[in-house]
Amino acid sequence: METELKDKIVSIEKPAIEAPPEWKPMIMGILCNWCSYAGSDLTGTSRIQYPPDIRIIRVPCSSRVDPWFIIKSLQAHADGVLISGCHPGDCHYISGNYYARRRFLVTKKLLNFVGLHEDRVQFSWVSAAEGAKFAQVVAKVSEDIRKMGPLHLYKKENTR
């Protein structure tokens, strides 16, 4: 698995940086209010545990997410970004998640083009009823990012 992932990394990110022992990944999670944010609340209510690497921002709909937010997150401090919205067909705003899906396919291509591993940015569908799924998604993203190591490319100093 590890080698597979490394192989997928395009040249600029290769070799993956040996992470310092105290390093913990930082994942920016941007969730839609109606499905995924509610789902993440349910994860909490159900006391399902997941890695503490994610910081969650609430937006009304996944279609609100501007690729700018993703890029800014990666520039600032995040090692990965997770966007999550309603399942296809279930968007609270009828069709927003379809726009989001198309937009992120393009964004991923761009990020890959500039040398980032495409799995740094992940997209998922989590409904308000899928507390357990949200925990699984975070665990998976966290594991992927841990394998990739800290993101050092394009980091801007003093962005905070």
Partner: peptide, 30 residues
């Protein structure tokens, strides 16, 4: 929903309560 905000290439549209400024502030805060 904010679909129009994200699609606008001139950044002419903003969504009250979830403005670009608010979200970017959140992103860079940590």
């Amino acid at each position: 929903c904010g679909s129009c905000v994200a699609i606008c290439r001139s950044m002419a549209i903003d969504l009250a309560g979830f403005t670009d400024m608010q979200i970017i502030n959140e992103i860079v805060a940590i």
